[in-house]
Nucleic acid binder design. Structure first.
Ligand SMILES: [Mn+2]
Ligand SMILES: [Mn+2]
Ligand SMILES: [Zn+2]
Ligand SMILES: [Zn+2]
Lengths: 149, 149
DNA sequence: GGAGAGAATGCAAATGGAATGCATTTGCAA
DNA sequence: TTGCAAATGCATTCCATTTGCATTCTCTCC
């Protein structure tokens, strides 16, 4: 048992889930990843790492994690694929570079005031939100500017 | 030819698209709809209206419209279905009631300041964004409050 | 108005991400 | 250690969307 899995063992137990090597492996990969991963990406990484896991297991595990709120799902119109990331219980959003497809996490969130406005104006009680921002990252802006000269 | 289609005829022509009854019918339905529709929803409505259209045609038409920027695509993690709406060229967002699944359009947008912040802090140039807000609508709040008493 | 060319459509089949039924294995509580 | 429920593997299915190809339709040019 790896040291970094010990805390996850407790987490799983608390949620009434059994501890398995696959689950640890998936949690570990999600933890190390800087951006949300598709089931298939995880599957390929797992094959290289754990050897022998089934894609169904990846999907089922991610579903279970999602239902226990350990993992967050998201989807872009881009490709029809769902992406999964560890729920760090921190509020954040993603910047998506339309040029190099990099995802950048940010902590800024502009919803606060709007939330109050909606409550006052139309009595809508906000419980959550999704914000995705598209544009050009620092690198791609540099490249683009150079080409334009 | 219906009166309301005359302007669309010009729009299609300007985009180099041929004018067909299917395209007019789809544009008309999207125009009348208050919230984004799936290809299948459109298909069913079209069957009732135009009689005889093929689902592939619906998809192909929506794709073409999207590429010409007449139509906007969106997707929620919810069900695996993509939704389409007319591009009204007005900036808006949707409130999604998690209780009654109603979609409410709003014009407020809180991105403005954030845009500048991102430019200054990490040189990210925002070109677009998606914001979806979840919560309880006025009606569902009333019902919920009454039940709780 | 009537060709002719190219675009749009219908139809059937394919694709591909995700879900599922069932037999087998595994984790874990007693 | 044993027994049972949960987890997994494997094959199959599901279902939204896409695609190939034959046919039909639009629109331009005469
Ligand atoms: Mn936020
Ligand atoms: Mn906005
Ligand atoms: Zn970039
Ligand atoms: Zn509601």
């Amino acid at each position: 048992m790896l040291a970094e899995n010990i805390n996850y063992k407790d987490v799983l137990k608390k949620e009434g889930m059994k501890s398995t090597k696959h689950r640890f492996a998936i949690l570990e990969l999600l933890e190390q990843s800087e951006s949300p991963l598709t089931a298939e990406q995880l599957f390929i990484m797992l094959r290289a790492k754990t050897a022998s896991i089934n894609l169904s297991t990846v999907y089922r595990t991610l579903d279970t994690f999602t239902s226990k709120n350990l993992v967050l799902k998201s989807s872009r119109v881009d490709d029809g694929k769902v992406r999964y990331e560890l729920n760090q219980h921190e509020h954040k959003h993603h910047l998506y570079c339309v040029s190099c497809h990099k995802l950048i996490s940010i902590e800024e969130c502009p919803i606060g005031e709007l939330k109050q406005t909606l409550k006052n104006k139309i009595d809508f009680e906000v419980t959550g939100h999704n914000l995705e921002i598209y544009g050009y990252c620092h690198n791609c802006r540099k490249v683009h500017n150079n080409n334009a000269q």
